[in-house]
Write a protein that binds this DNA or RNA. Sequence first.
DNA 1: GTGAAAGCGCTAACAC
DNA 2: GTGTTAGCGCTTTCAC
Lengths: 338, 338
Amino acid sequence: MRKTKRITIKDVAELAGVSKATASLVLNGRSKELRVAEETRDRVLAIAKQHHYQPSIHARSLRDNRSHTIGLVVPEITNYGFADFSHELETLCREAGVQLLISCTDENPGQETVVVNNMVSRQVDGLIVASSMLNDTDYQKLSEQLPIVLFDRHMNDSSLPQVITDSITPTRELVADIARQHPDEIYFLGGQPRLSPTRDRLEGFKQGLAQAGVTLRPEWIIHGNYHPSSGYEMFAALCAQLGRPPKAVFTAACGLLEGVLRYMGQHNLLQSDMRLASFDDHYLYDSLAISIDTIRQDNRQLAWHCFDLIGKLIEGETPDPLQRKLDATLQRRYKTAG
Amino acid sequence: MRKTKRITIKDVAELAGVSKATASLVLNGRSKELRVAEETRDRVLAIAKQHHYQPSIHARSLRDNRSHTIGLVVPEITNYGFADFSHELETLCREAGVQLLISCTDENPGQETVVVNNMVSRQVDGLIVASSMLNDTDYQKLSEQLPIVLFDRHMNDSSLPQVITDSITPTRELVADIARQHPDEIYFLGGQPRLSPTRDRLEGFKQGLAQAGVTLRPEWIIHGNYHPSSGYEMFAALCAQLGRPPKAVFTAACGLLEGVLRYMGQHNLLQSDMRLASFDDHYLYDSLAISIDTIRQDNRQLAWHCFDLIGKLIEGETPDPLQRKLDATLQRRYKTAG
DNA sequence: GTGAAAGCGCTAACAC
DNA sequence: GTGTTAGCGCTTTCAC
């Protein structure tokens, strides 16, 4: 293992019979502008190629005080939406010669602090975060040290750069549609009430009811958290309380939906005529027994904007606008009888 | 942005009125063994804490010629199995103070070369790869430079360190069961015939037929590739050829199954009595209209062994055994009538 | 046109 | 007990 020792610029220089400085110029393609003799240049390049010279990224990072690395912090990489987003972002990074570091928080604010500190100590040039925190004070402070972009979730009136999907509009439209079919019973299952996705989607839910002329009943709104099991429990409790499955349910995120589906699978409810809708899409929903309407985020756009923001911030530019809101798409699967 | 300039060990030393060397000793917790005065030590530590001193990882990496970073290369992070594996591996790495770099190849050998080179140039200490290559010559060569562990897929007689799930045994058992129910028609949809998962799972398929006393018909075996669309196309062609859906199908990986399900969804076949089975599990399969038997890999074990191997290799140890084969679990969902 | 030297932040040998 | 120094690999003035 590790037989071949690294070849350094000093080695290349010596082999080519020039100084480190000259070799450096040539290898950085600045030989033209700084008038290095063509013959010298070719010699250096030949040696470098022949010995597979690769610059030490550590030496460079140390010198430049730049790691060409950015961090991505997400709640769960096993969540299809975040995986898709990560993939898109990784592609953008690779094309730009930037290395992406990915860490998961498991929806746990304590762990979020750990992984973020970890990335800071790794001297990432910037940080892109889908935070599980309730407020942005930590990030506000951190953003004095390095560029931060929040996405997917946003905090109360945060002024930090951020990219989110507009949840309210599509939720309103979808919920209004469902409410017209089931004006007497439509439940909202959400995560922590203080997290922005919950608040926004609940707002959309309320607007949807209003739009359909349906009066909200307080018991329709149920809060839990975004842990996988929470959707299951909320739905189980609801079924127990009603003595039957509800007529219509909107879940605020795919994790919650997952729990609901698990319960339904275990209790043979998948063939029922319950109307189910959710934020977040998944390709397997096309193959489920039950037709679920969903709201699909555009992860490619999301990733692009995050990358654009963080890149500009790192370069010291001031991107405009600093906060971006993207459109989602309704994915309708439910077919109204007749 | 970036108001606060980094504080270095030199700053700490000066503020504490000691030399860099002393400060370094103290900060690395080696003050006891090298008899630094307690008073000095406390002073240094106080200053460091007060100014939030954080060592420069780049300087350290440069000096130690170690990045405390390992690379993970997977075909698709959006594939649930790989996402789950990545998550497990990331947790292990974090606990060990190692940073994990993740890159995707999109099942494309050319891109695999790119991302691997990328990681090498990032000077990762080791590399864990689920390769889409047909042979291991590239990795054989690369392993002279740095430790490599292959997982999930293995190449022909490769002697490189690797961790794989035993596909043959569970596939045989599952297929034998299906073959007893449908001795006259059971199809195998696989990826590239030369990739190890395809070969192993096909071998298990054949053994399963033999075990059930069923004679294999050559037309039952269909090869495509592991791209999402391939399963769809193979299955569509099969349905077209038969003029009806097949009675029983085994797909060699979840990507292929995804394609089959998409076709079935579009053609209202999800309620049919076709028997479907596959390698790789997904939590949503519990909620599908059709009951799919699957073979579930143990990603936590898989990640643990990869981490164990790469860690030991990096430390210069020779792990034993160098190649590991783990057991999978049958996830039965199909209920035989009666 | 090219080379010598300094410095990025850190640690380890070796003085004192 | 503590300080001095050299060196990890690279780039960038500034001389020559």
